[in-house]
Design a protein around this nucleic acid. Sequence first.
DNA 1: ATTGTTCTTAATCAAATCTTAATGTGTTGG
DNA 2: CCAACACATTAAGATTTGATTAAGAACAAT
Lengths: 232, 232
Amino acid sequence: MYNILICDDDKDIVNALKIYLQNPDYRLFEAHNGVEAVEMTQKEEFHLILLDIMMPQMDGITAMSKIREKHNMPIIMLTAKSEDTDKILGLTIGADDYITKPFNPLEVAARVGSQLRRYTKLGSGTVSKSILQVGSIELNSDTKTVTVDGNTVNLTPKEFDILKLLMKEPGKVFAPKEIYLKVWGEDALTAGDNTVAVHIRHLREKIEITPNDPRYIKVIFGQGYKIEKGRN
Amino acid sequence: MYNILICDDDKDIVNALKIYLQNPDYRLFEAHNGVEAVEMTQKEEFHLILLDIMMPQMDGITAMSKIREKHNMPIIMLTAKSEDTDKILGLTIGADDYITKPFNPLEVAARVGSQLRRYTKLGSGTVSKSILQVGSIELNSDTKTVTVDGNTVNLTPKEFDILKLLMKEPGKVFAPKEIYLKVWGEDALTAGDNTVAVHIRHLREKIEITPNDPRYIKVIFGQGYKIEKGRN
DNA sequence: ATTGTTCTTAATCAAATCTTAATGTGTTGG
DNA sequence: CCAACACATTAAGATTTGATTAAGAACAAT
């Protein structure tokens, strides 16, 4: 089930889009200007936004950059004419696609589907999707909770972040240095050499049945750590 | 620096796109049919592909699904007319965007930039699966894994790097000195003379059935090592 | 301030990996 | 044919990497 926000000042257009996007998997919301759209994203979690470029009060481009400060869902811009300038301006600051009016119903549905699919596909690895799953480990970013085989385990912030990083791309090998950079931040002068190794140890003690001979958090000697995707 | 593959059977179109995408950050490659495109993705790591839907030998959609089996970079489809059917068909199985001919230069640049930006932003690094294939050897840079005939072999970092170097350009001969420079780094004071040979030996022991009389890692006396492309 | 938690440091250990060196084998050019 | 050279092979020891433990710093909450 996806929450989709349609934002256009022209109610006829909103209604048309609502019809085109009739789909049991879509929950459709509407806004009629940029301010409203920004406010709604603060209350509800959307998976995709259709955003008109030209609107009263706050234009779509400004609205988008406001939204993008906090959220990371795909945004499809709606443009009245095919004004290349506007198109490009909108795209450059972060839209994922755009559709020109008048709409082709099938095209609208296809583009929306494409973005959602792409998002969730990548999301299984990258975007801020709140629940990650690998094997019988479940990590919920919203509640900052991790369960293994249904049992909740308490992780410290650093442990949580490291596990999240690994779980975002299961199977991918992360060098300790890379983990350090991504979890601690790009600056992070306090580069303790083996501090990552220590956290990994703690993680293994909490997550693995046998912290020595770990089933999930594996090491590739000289390359880094990874979380095991499939069975062990 | 991004590697971009442009694939179209019409050379004029390829050239036009090359001009539109003139950018110091882009390294442009070209292919002229689907088969070629698929092969190229096995040798080089691309960050984005522009793929024509209608091509001889293998159409763009088939090519895309082949590529998507191994790789995960954004793909932008190029469509001749605005045939909604084709567009949507292409989109549904995994393209990230499409552009209709004739092209608007600015639009092409904008879309390409948009996809690259979106991708690297989401990935907060490299999302792309990168799998190199030569014969029945498969090398995955993300998981630092190598399989031969489906069997996983454990390589040390140096072994892995050397194999990767050879597999990036199958058939090309690399002098030991060159291998040393590229794998160890441009500085590399610790220039042991035959250390490369030792690693090659280890590699052969791990991936060849008969380490003496090797099938994959061949030597050209006085020239260097190469990995055998075709059958032996 | 005191307590409890989390993070970092440091020291030690084990193991995998890398390099060296010594010697063997094959190739090439004169 | 033979010297010179390029690669092969092996095993030892040097180096690097990760594991582990515990202590004490930093931090947060009471």
